[in-house]
C-alpha cells in the first residue's frame, strides 16, 4: 500500500506545467487534490513515472462569475462549494451536491476540476457538468481548446483529454431565476459512491416547463443527459404525472451497468426513483 517510485516536480506556473507535460508524454501525471489518484497509486493501479503537482500554480486557484458563466479554476477544492459560489439556481445546486461528494476531509483537498478530469462514472461533479452542459477548458503547449461536456466524457475514467493537456478550468452556466434545480442520489452510506443519481434543471414559465435538462450518473460508464425524459417534460405543466412520465422515460432509456454494488435491473429501478425525486425537488 505504498506508491511505486516516481519523479516529482512542483511547477510554479502554468507554462512550466505545460512544458513538463509535453516533455513527459504518457509517463506524466498531474496531481491536484490527489484524493482519487493517491489511492490508485497506493494500490499501484496507477504507476506514473512522473508526477506534476499543481498546488503551487497560483494562477489556477480561482473561482469567479464572468457574464453568465461560473469559472471554476483547476485548484478550486470541493469545500469551496459548501456555500453557494454564485447566486441563483446554479449556486444552490452546487452547494447541495457538494454534501454528497465524498467526506468532509476529502473535500478539503479534492478539486472540482480534478474530479472532472478523473471522470469516475459515480462522480457528482461529472453529472452536474453533463447536465448543465459545462465547458471544459483544456490547455497544452499547442494552445487552448474548449470541450463540451457531452464530448469530454468518453468512458469510465476516460476523457477527451490528451496526455499533454491540463484542465485549467470548468465553466458552468449561471442559470437565471426562472430555472429550478434538483438533485437526488442513492448510495449505501453518506459519502459513498453513488449507485444511481439524477440532476435536473427546469426552466419554468407560469408553471409550464419551457426547457428541461435531466442528467443521470453512477449508472452508465459516464454521466448522460436523458433526451426522452427531457422531451416528456417540455411544454407541459409541472404535474405529478409529467414528472413520473419523465422518470419512466429515463429509466427506460438508460443502459445500466452491473457491478458488485448493484445489478442493472436494480440500477434501472433506482434511476426512476432518483429522477422523480430530483424533479419533485426542482418543482417544489
Amino acid at each position: 500500500m505504498k506508491p511505486a517510485p516516481f519523479r516529482y516536480d512542483a511547477p510554479a506556473t502554468l507554462d512550466e506545467t505545460l512544458s513538463l507535460l509535453a516533455e513527459a508524454g504518457e509517463h506524466g501525471k498531474l496531481i491536484a487534490g490527489g484524493q482519487s489518484l493517491v489511492p490508485m497509486m497506493n494500490f499501484r493501479l496507477a504507476r506514473p513515472g512522473r508526477l506534476f503537482d499543481l498546488n503551487g500554480v497560483a494562477e489556477l486557484d480561482f473561482m469567479r462569475v464572468e457574464g453568465a458563466r461560473l469559472r471554476i479554476g483547476a485548484l478550486t477544492r470541493h469545500a469551496a462549494f459548501h456555500r453557494p459560489p454564485c447566486e441563483g439556481p446554479t449556486g444552490a445546486l452546487l452547494a447541495e451536491v457538494v454534501r454528497h461528494v465524498a467526506h468532509y476531509p476529502i473535500r478539503q483537498r479534492g478539486t472540482f476540476a480534478g474530479s472532472i478530469a478523473h471522470a469516475d462514472p459515480a462522480s457528482e461533479w461529472c453529472l452536474v457538468a453533463a447536465t448543465l452542459d459545462a465547458e471544459i477548458v483544456a490547455r497544452s503547449r499547442a494552445g487552448e481548446r474548449v470541450i463540451a461536456a457531452r464530448d469530454f466524457f468518453v468512458a469510465s475514467l476516460a476523457t477527451a483529454l490528451r496526455p499533454d493537456e491540463l484542465v485549467t478550468e470548468v465553466r458552468l452556466p449561471v442559470l437565471g431565476a426562472r430555472w429550478r434545480t434538483g438533485f437526488c442520489e442513492f448510495a449505501r452510506r453518506a459519502g459513498d459512491f453513488a449507485i444511481a443519481m439524477s440532476a435536473v434543471a427546469l426552466r419554468l414559465d407560469a408553471g409550464i416547463v419551457r426547457e428541461a435538462r435531466v442528467g443521470v450518473g453512477g449508472v452508465e460508464d459516464r454521466p448522460s443527459r436523458q433526451p426522452a425524459a427531457e422531451q416528456a417534460l417540455a411544454g407541459r405543466p409541472v404535474s405529478p404525472a409529467a414528472l413520473a412520465e419523465a422518470a419512466d422515460a429515463a429509466a427506460r432509456e438508460v443502459k445500466p451497468m452491473t457491478d458488485l454494488h448493484a445489478d442493472a435491473a436494480y440500477r434501472r429501478h433506482l434511476v426512476r426513483t432518483t429522477t422523480r425525486r430530483a424533479l419533485e425537488r426542482a418543482a417544489a
Binding site: 516529482y8 496531481i31 503537482d53 498546488n55 469545500a79 476529502i106 478539503q108 483537498r109
Partner: peptide, 13 residues
C-alpha cells in the same frame, strides 16, 4: 487547520 487524510497527501506536499 483543515482535517485531511495523511495517507492521501505526500510529505513533499
Amino acid at each position: 487547520g483543515a482535517p485531511v487524510r495523511a495517507c492521501l497527501m505526500l510529505a513533499v506536499q
